[in-house]
Amino acid sequence: MFVQVVQLGSVTAVARVLDMSQPSVSKSLALAEQQMGFALFERLDGRMQPTPEARQVYEEACRVQESMVRFDRFIEQVRRYSVGQLRVCATPALAINVLPQAARHFREAFPEHGLVVDMYLNNEIEDAIANRQYDVGFVLEPDDASIPERDVVSRGRMVCVMPRDHRLASRKAVSWQDLDARELVYITTDARIVAMMANAIDGFRERPVSALETNRYTMAINLVRQGIGVTLVDEFALAGAARDDIAVVPLAPRIPVVVRAVRGGRQVVADQSDRFIGEMRGLLRSTGTGDKPVRRKT
């Protein structure tokens, strides 16, 4: 009620919005002032103007209100979970090209189970899982031996994408020294990937003034399709995408990356989560993206 009065400037308007009587609103405000020990409003030109103290209270009240909205949203999620729902998110490239196919296979296996599939920025997915917004997330990151095998969806490498008629298109591999930095479309999506590239390539951060940059792999690939230049992406950015008008050449030396599944803590959807991860793993394998799995001796 207090927030509404600050925003609308009128007890009458607030009473109308909240479907209350005007005396009830006035009485509640008077009680609030009594409890706080200072005046909240003063009348000026027919409007309720907040006092300096009230302006400070208003900022905190808005934060509390936002927290309550998030809490209500969380309760709604719990209510939906009770009837069965799996919430999945992935990096933009995977969300556009692979996630829909995995969703189709999942729906065929669990036709009565609710499913949410969303696109999230790569560096925001783990926080979204930790905050219980999603049950499963698929992130791209530098390959690391410490990643549990059960969470590895696919391993791959960085590649160079160029027009089919590019001078380097017939190479089996290209190095940084083979490229002209002036024609490179730089990608600034994730600090971890940029750091990985900088550690592997001397001079990677030294960009010319005329550099072309984007924060989306799909955008970088489409810029290449327009004949603007070449770009360096992880090969998963090309999963399910047409390659008729582009050439994809491995980058040398090899810079390894991995698609990792981030799992939430809800055991009630553990089987469904494992099934969805398995679908993503199979799809990336069938599209020829990523390394072939290595059979380990037992």
Rank of each mutant, 00 (worst) to 15 (best):
K292P: 09
T287W: 07
R167Q: 07
M280S: 02
D143C: 09
R155T: 04
L184F: 09
A241I: 01
E42A: 07
V98Y: 00
D165M: 07
A261P: 04
S286V: 08
I125R: 01
Q226F: 13
R104G: 06
R254Q: 13
Q56H: 14
V185Q: 03
L168V: 02
W176F: 12
E112W: 11
A247D: 06
H105D: 10
L223C: 07
Q77M: 15
S26R: 12
E149T: 12
E76V: 06
R281L: 05
A261C: 14
A173T: 13
N222Q: 14
T12I: 13
G290A: 08
F106W: 01
V152W: 05
V269Y: 01
Y120S: 15
T189I: 13
R164C: 12
Q49F: 07
A145H: 12
V78Y: 12
R296M: 13
A237C: 11
N131L: 10
A252L: 09
G114S: 00
G137C: 03
G264D: 02
V248T: 08
Q101V: 00
Q77A: 11
A200R: 11
A145G: 11
R167S: 08
L44F: 11
A128K: 05
D244N: 11
A103K: 02
M1G: 08
Y217H: 15
A32M: 14
E66T: 11
R16W: 06
N199C: 12
F110G: 03
V78F: 13
C160Y: 02
S175G: 10
L251Q: 01
E279H: 13
L99W: 02
M219E: 15
V268A: 15
P100T: 05
R104P: 05
V136L: 14
A95F: 01
A93I: 01
A145R: 14
R171K: 09
